[in-house]
């Protein structure tokens, strides 16, 4: 029997090896390396200084820098609003396209198009839409006399972050729809039939049948999306470059690491970000009971 167990373990290691080697090298090793580098002062623009050990100085610098707190706030703001909107819209659309109607396949495909368009293309498209001179949004509002003169949507503190949220919601709601639609299809129609017999109104059916049965998949979708939204980079980078109070933690980390070549500080920021994401995941998994493991 023991021999059997050893053989099984051997097979298992053989099966997981390719994946774990890839993940280990491209993700786990770098974060450990970042952790190690975060205790040193590594400034590539000043090679004569060497790489002195500085202990927690990089972290102290981060936590006393108002730019970090602003970026943390922007990231949280963006994550909470985008993910909430995506969940509400995603659930509504998923429920609509789950009902049978003529042209359903076509509509499902059209709803998913934003997800299929590469970010390079869609980010450019949104830049054009929000452009203050040639942009569609401005022209449309001026046509309907809502706006009297061009407005710099991406270059104003009031609207820049809303533009990023709009572009993100447009792009990632389809992902939410996809996951939730899959979840809706696993709900047996019998539950609804039973509720109908009991005379439940559509709203009560939603509240007492759909929501509880969909809860596990909602939590998984929320977790995946939150982790992704918290790391948002490309949209912000292309639309505003982090200006006008839109700098997120990813943009800040990139800026410190690649533009300022301050690898020690950049690594410390990456570690702080990783810890934030761990805390979020922990809350989701433990408190809300998203059963990722089982």
């Amino acid at each position: 029997m023991d021999k059997e167990a050893t053989r099984e373990a051997k097979t298992a290691y053989l099966l997981v090896a390719p994946s774990l080697i890839v993940i280990g090298v491209i993700a786990l090793f770098p974060i450990l390396r970042s952790l190690w580098m975060s205790f040193y002062a590594i400034d590539l623009t000043l090679p004569q200084l060497g790489r002195p050990f500085v202990g927690l100085a990089n972290y102290l610098e981060i936590f006393t820098d108002s730019r970090f707190w602003a970026a943390l706030w922007n990231t949280t703001y963006f994550t909470v609003i985008s993910v909430t909107l995506e969940l509400v819209l995603g659930l509504a659309i998923a429920m609509l396209v789950n009902r049978p109607f003529a042209g359903r396949g076509l509509l499902r495909a059209s709803v998913l198009i934003p997800w299929a368009i590469p970010t390079v293309v869609s980010a450019q498209m949104w830049r054009w839409i929000f452009n203050d001179k040639a942009g569609i949004l401005g022209s449309l509002l001026q046509n309907f006399k809502i706006l009297s003169e061009p407005y710099p949507w991406l270059a104003s503190v009031e609207t820049a972050r809303l533009c990023i949220i709009a572009a993100d919601v447009w792009k990632t709601t389809p992902f939410m729809v996809l996951l939730l639609l899959a979840g809706l299809q696993t709900i047996s129609p019998e539950y609804y039939e039973a509720a109908m017999v009991d005379g439940a109104t559509p709203f009560r059916r939603f509240l007492h049948v759909t929501l509880p049965l969909l809860k596990p998949i909602i939590l998984v979708a929320l977790l995946f999306r939150t982790l992704d939204a918290f790391r948002i980079f490309d949209l912000v980078y292309v639309l505003t470059g982090g200006a006008f109070k839109t700098e997120t933690l990813s943009v800040l980390t990139s800026d410190v690491t690649f533009k300022c070549s301050d690898y020690g500080q950049g690594s410390a920021l990456a570690v702080v970000m990783f810890c934030c994401i761990m805390v979020i995941s922990f809350i989701f998994i433990k408190v809300l009971g998203a059963k990722v493991e089982e």
């Binding site: 993940i23 491209i26 974060i31 790391r231 990813s250 980390t253 970000m273 994401i277 990722v292 493991e293």
Partner: peptide
């Protein structure tokens, strides 16, 4: 190992690029 696999989803790209 399974937890480490899931954990790898939480690592920001900026931390992995240089390495």
């Amino acid at each position: 190992l399974f937890l480490a696999t899931l954990g790898s989803m939480m690592i920001p790209a900026q931390a992995t690029m240089i390495s």
